[in-house]
């Protein structure tokens, strides 16, 4: 299945991202798919840096930069004001990092989901506070090194996808930059499915924070899916699960070995993490229905 990615040049070159940055790559697919009739909300993050300093902007749409914990509330305020003025067509999207989503912004996000605000919320998840130099967030996986967990993170990554799906919102999807057509298709789906909160969490490898080679982001992203640590799926209304790309038997060790943040792992650690991935996949797989297994592809 190939989805044709629209390139409407809402997001433009010349921005301040690191070479090879997957947050910038994700922004390109997200913003160009949403199109020019969009207002974006961005909290402090690499996204804010990439959006640009005043008076420059990499985005040819209005961008409102808000505080770290307020993205969902800020986006909802814009949408309600547009509706009050009779504008029902403009997309309002919050694009936030994992710290701004899983941690400090979660209260506002959960409430916006509960109120089913008519906004799109995209979390660009690079599994830590990378903009401040790689500190642990609740999106950081088990055992990963960050500067605030120098011995490796003792607890697992928060499962934000399932938590958001449990709000029974119209649409929840996971995506990653190594599957750009899948990512863009999901953004288009979210865009066209108006009337409630649509949430997409996008795994975006951070070259510096994860300790990977400049050209290794796409491969790392694909291995996250193929190893099963980050399956790509969609959930409609909290109960209709569709698997797009599941594990393809790639051992987790291969995914871990290319990232310096896992450089300290012992074979026992790798085994521990593999068991965690297997367990999570088993639990998720059950949600796709007994007859469907791992082979369903989203349309």
């Amino acid at each position: 299945m190939n989805y044709q990615i629209a390139e409407q040049r809402v997001f433009n070159p010349g921005h301040a991202a690191c070479p090879g940055c997957h947050v910038a790559l994700a922004m390109r697919f997200v913003l160009n798919t949403l199109g020019p009739d969009t207002i974006a909300v961005v909290p402090p993050s690499c996204i804010a840096i990439i959006a640009g300093p005043q008076p420059l902007s990499s985005m040819r749409i209005p961008v409102y930069q808000t505080t770290l914990e307020a993205s969902a509330a800020s986006a909802a305020g814009i949408k309600r004001a547009l509706v009050a003025k009779g504008n029902h067509h403009t997309n309002v999207v919050a694009i936030a990092g994992d710290g701004g989503t899983y941690d400090i912004g979660f209260q506002a996000l959960s409430s916006a989901a509960e109120r089913n605000e008519d906004i799109i919320y995209v979390c660009l998840d690079n599994e830590g506070y990378m903009n401040t130099g790689s500190q642990k967030s609740s999106a950081t996986p088990s055992r990963a090194y960050t500067t605030s967990t120098p011995s490796g993170k003792p607890t697992p990554k928060k499962n934000v996808a399932e938590i958001m799906a449990a709000h029974n919102i119209p649409y929840m999807a996971t995506a990653t930059t190594g599957y750009p057509d899948d990512l863009a298709r999901k953004v288009a789906r979210a865009r066209d499915m108006k009337g409630g909160l649509r949430f997409i969490v996008v795994l975006t490898p951070c070259l510096d924070g994860w300790g990977i080679a400049d050209d290794d982001g796409p491969k790392t992203s694909r291995l996250a899916v193929e190893s099963g640590i980050f399956p790509l799926y969609e959930v409609e209304n909290g109960n209709r699960y569709t698997l797009n790309h599941g594990p393809e038997g790639a051992p987790l060790a291969g995914y871990l070995a290319r990232q310096q943040r896992y450089g300290h792992l012992s074979p026992a650690d790798v085994e521990f993490l593999q068991a965690e991935v297997d367990r999570n996949w088993e639990r998720l797989q059950a949600k796709f229905g007994s007859a469907t297994g791992a082979a369903i592809k989203g349309g």
Binding site: V41, A73, G77, R80
Partner: peptide, 27 residues
Amino acid sequence: AAEVMTMESEHSAMAAAITASLTGARV
């Protein structure tokens, strides 16, 4: 006639008030 937003905190109430105002609504 107004859009009432039943927020989860005063912090979010003010965050939404700001953007609604900046979008041109009296808040």
